[in-house]
Design a protein around this nucleic acid. Structure first.
Lengths: 300, 300
DNA sequence: TGGGCACCATTACAATCGGATATGGATGCC
DNA sequence: GGCATCCATATCCGATTGTAATGGTGCCCA
């Protein structure tokens, strides 16, 4: 009596599933990129090893037996499990050899993010990274739509379908031209800036609104001399003596030199950036590694 | 760049699991009844197909990588799933699983068939049986129309679309009240029953016709005092002294007690029951096993 | 320090597996 | 009857997968 030998073959199971799903061995062969005899023999082998007939050969067709249908349910579960293995393997493989697509606002991309990525690449020699500079909604959409693996964006973020992990946080500083009367202050408030020529950026953004409010609260006149879009430009204007730039502390540092002084602005307006990923997709392993790397890299 | 080929092999997974569990490839080989080089090569193949290193070869030992440990969890789940397949296959092989719908005439269902089924259930723990009591044409139709898997019916059967396997056979006996003048006979013929009060059943059925013929042949007067429908009732009447019942030997036995005597009736009128299945449908495995069980159970 | 031991990798070779192509039989459809 | 479809079998061939033999390396211990 032939007992099941337990030497079950994955390919046979795949054949079996395909035959049940598609109704014929020839169709199964097409799906599996095999020839019909190959499928036929696989099936024979499987029947041999399980020890009972899976199909009745009836009028040249394969009719599943009752047992086959019971068997099928379990086989499908197992094959799904094998599928998970494959996907996991791919993920793990990609952690060392994969590609990572990242999107970030230009401000981050040009400064601290590029050095974080450099450090990551040194530790993961075979990973290649694509860094896309996009700001605002575009970046969020790219992550949510999985056009990229992960991204960075400024908080607050209102977007369903994203997971946001706060990562970097910094206050607000004034870039004051050297020799300016405020250059020696420990901190500068909106009141101190009454009627001072200012260089501001991010009109309409939340941090900008907070600055506006601070001036309103202090009943200071806000004299905006230059509206610009990047911290680098703002600092450059400040260096040129065109006024005091109120900028994120995080980015101002890299532009600070002897011609300007960075003085803390009061009230403390926080600039926070988060690591963002799509909600309904587990991160690829590279992305996970990258996230962990960033956590370490940016920790205070 | 070597991408995972997804042609993952169960044996490789088994090797991998064993290596992690036991800590060395040689130990794994022992467990799997393989040689160490075989395991070594399986491992190599698996690494090839997943696309990353599973073990660091360090000082002649295999040290699992971080990825390997993550991979291991998933592999274990998959292997357990495969194990379930094997067990299910074994169960199906032993027909230890499933449902069986049976139809039989009430006479069988109440007596010997129920004990046969009980015995079958004891041997096949996960089988559930539905037994439907129907007689005559209804039962045959139910089998032919595949409303049930199999059934029992009295021969002769005239029904296309059925396979009949004779299973149980018995003669005819007279149930004679104790103390009756015929109670001590070795056998009783139609002649002996001339003008005796009789209890008969199955009017119009073939066995009844044979009895009628026997009386006609013997030129005996058939004095039918009671017509009834079940052997149990017939025997009860006999016990009450209402007359001699002429019944199937097969069923009379269970009703025999000290108040009646069973005496063989001559000529020998056979009562035969067959196991019946639909012609154009191979029996389910459980049904086959049940048939084999019945063959053994009812063999003379 | 050198020998024994445990472990892993590699090689060489044999058996088997697992594909492909070619062919044949049965069935159903026009 | 001719044709298409489907399954099974035969034969062939390369890939896979097992084995035994061998070699290298690190560890333990006298």
């Amino acid at each position: 009596m032939p007992l099941p030998s337990f030497t079950i073959n994955l390919k046979s199971l795949e054949c079996f599933r395909a035959i049940i799903d598609l109704g014929s061995a020839t169709a199964a062969a097409r799906e599996l990129n095999l020839t019909q005899p190959a499928v036929s023999r696989c099936l024979g082998a499987l029947e041999e090893s399980v020890g009972f007939r899976l199909f009745n050969r009836c009028k040249g067709r394969l009719i599943p037996t009752d047992e086959a249908l019971i068997f099928y349910d379990e086989v499908k579960i197992t094959l799904q499990s094998v599928g998970r293995i494959s996907r996991l393997a791919l993920n793990l493989h990609n952690a060392n050899f994969g590609e990572l697509k990242v999107v970030s606002p230009p401000s981050l991309a040009e400064g601290m993010l590029s050095s974080a990525i450099n450090a990551f690449l040194r530790e993961h020699s075979d990973v290649s990274i694509t860094l896309d500079s996009q700001s605002g909604q575009t970046a969020l959409d790219m992550v949510a739509l999985r056009a990229v693996d992960c991204g960075f964006a400024k908080l607050p973020i209102d977007h369903r379908g994203l997971i946001c992990q706060p990562l970097i946080s910094g206050g607000t500083v004034c870039a004051v031209p050297k020799g300016h009367k405020l250059a020696r202050s420990k901190q500068i408030s909106a009141k101190d800036l009454d009627d001072e020529p200012l260089i501001l950026l991010g009109k309409g953004r939340s941090s900008r609104n907070q600055i506006d409010s601070a001036f309103a609260d202090a009943k200071s006149r806000m004299r905006v001399r230059i509206e610009t879009h990047t911290v680098g430009a703002a600092c450059a204007f400040a260096k040129g003596g065109s006024g005091i730039a109120i900028v994120s502390e995080l980015f101002a540092r890299q532009f600070a030199d002897k011609s300007i002084v960075l003085v803390r602005f009061r009230p403390d307006i926080r600039h926070e950036y988060a690591f963002i990923t799509a909600k309904d997709a587990t991160m690829s392993r590279v992305a996970q590694r990258f996230y962990e790397h960033c956590l370490r890299y940016f920790e205070p």
